[in-house]
Design a protein around this nucleic acid. Sequence first.
DNA 1: GTTATTAGGTTAAACGTTTAACCTCTTTTC
DNA 2: GAAAAGAGGTTAAACGTTTAACCTAATAAC
Lengths: 332, 332
Amino acid sequence: MKITMKEIAKEANVSVATVSHVINGTKQISKETHSRVMGVVRKYNYMPNQAAKTLKRQKTMTAALVVSSLPDTFVSELTYGVEERAREMGYHLMLVNTNENVPYEKETINVLHSNMVDGIILSPTSSDLEYLNEFTEAGFPIVLVNRYHPVVKNTPRVTGDNYQTGYDATLHLLEHGHRDIGIIYGVPDVSTTNDRIRGYRDALEAYGIPFNEDYLELGAATKKGAATAAEKLLTRSRKISALFILNDLMTIGTISKLKEMNLLIPDDVAIIGFGDFPSAEIIDPPVTNIIQPPEQIGRIAFDILLDKIENPESVKHVELPANLVIRKSCGC
Amino acid sequence: MKITMKEIAKEANVSVATVSHVINGTKQISKETHSRVMGVVRKYNYMPNQAAKTLKRQKTMTAALVVSSLPDTFVSELTYGVEERAREMGYHLMLVNTNENVPYEKETINVLHSNMVDGIILSPTSSDLEYLNEFTEAGFPIVLVNRYHPVVKNTPRVTGDNYQTGYDATLHLLEHGHRDIGIIYGVPDVSTTNDRIRGYRDALEAYGIPFNEDYLELGAATKKGAATAAEKLLTRSRKISALFILNDLMTIGTISKLKEMNLLIPDDVAIIGFGDFPSAEIIDPPVTNIIQPPEQIGRIAFDILLDKIENPESVKHVELPANLVIRKSCGC
DNA sequence: GTTATTAGGTTAAACGTTTAACCTCTTTTC
DNA sequence: GAAAAGAGGTTAAACGTTTAACCTAATAAC
């Protein structure tokens, strides 16, 4: 069996309270006792039982990152940022992927809430987030990341500035003279998609161009999905001369389809992608991308979670700017 | 405060034991009592305190995945597989990235061992794994993934067949007529690197070609690292006509450098990469890759961990085959 | 030379579950 | 109709920590 504090205490000839105090530094302890206890601790490589500690302290020193999909570049890098920051701050990280499954997401939040973690960073599946209020109102720290919804009260969030990036990308394409710009989006009805499309609409409006529902197509956030979406879009609306694609895998899928259709980028169809990827600059042509800082979003989200844990009234909203890195696929 | 079993018991007019029994189904309970208790449970959305449960049961129902680096395609997909399988089996997953830091790895295993998790899937940083024996001998379940070392006894592992893939890739290049084949590797002195290089050597030997230390270069598993490694290799040994590159990011970095040097792929330098990536087929030329199934490795690793938890004597070794997917960069 | 203060410990209650042992009725068995 | 078995509960002891309250001897204060 695993060694316990009681046995350490016996071997060091002190009470368990003393062992606890030397380990945690919660009381003055004489030099000799201290080193005698630490000697025994090291001898057995003793580590306090986390469950007991948590039960008593009501603090787990672990946080959870709950995402709605894992095999996704953005999410991977987000995870990296969160994990790194958690580690730096002495926290452990629990990772759960809800796989875009809303009931499972609810269930997950519920069990994590029961003394498994001190707080949650959540990238939610849907906009139906009212159920979160039950937890946040009870003082359980949750921070929303990437996707959000105004229905959740008193809850910090950190996102990219999706509206602005949608606007900027569209504007750039407009400045290149494009008037018929298609969008391939990954997931319907989430704030990220909606905000970017809002930016797109407003940019069009600034140029006096009417919004056309036919120019939107769902790409399901996959290569294959985007390929068929691109095909639909370009056959249905032959005037489309530029595409704005809302994630990296879909950008790759689209390019693949365009090559298959023998369409030249950017001459026949210009492209701006969302989310940079490692090979973007060695593709022919190198692809122009909106780059968001997912790792930084993760780090900040963790810091805000910590702030929320220590200071329950605090509600910070952070919106990080993104950059348009211009390469060749837009026509530049 | 969070609601406890005691309060549920009071409101349902039963003892806490009874509440526990209805929740866990550990005893016959009358229909009325059962529904009365469940009524109160649902009313307050009660969930048992995990810390208390763990303390009593000595079982956490969570596993840990400890990797040595996170921002890496292979690791991301491995994580995906592990998380998915854990979720399916009703386990939670703890994720920690040791950042190739050996002391931190040791420390991590130590705290995870103290009733935080029921077992660990470890992709270790170094070959210095003797310290693990202390834990495995005490019956703590650990399964090694990807990297391993024979010094760890009684410990299951699941890896790709690195020797064979090293052999196959080299052979393919040899069949194309290449006699001077460089290797860019990511991390020195780990089993993955060593096994692949062993395969490379043996393939060369089968063709009667002497092994040349100068044909190896460290690429640090990054784009930049590989770019400078490629440059070094090609200027130092001008006869090199093919490159075998041991991870995806390094493949991209190398291609980028070759383009910069105005070298044609595959005419001036042929390339085979290790680890497929989403854009491999839209790059010009499409890149020939060894593809390993990291997600499957993850799933299997979790199953083996579970097996080890339930059956401590079990020691399974799994070695998964990889495929050479042939595209254009090898000269085909 | 009494009284406070401090240093260095110990005792014991609590954290919220689980579960063996026990109890009390009913029902079954022969 | 007495004994055995079963159904449906309860009691209380763990699980391994933390921490407030308490204790004692030594030192400081005046």
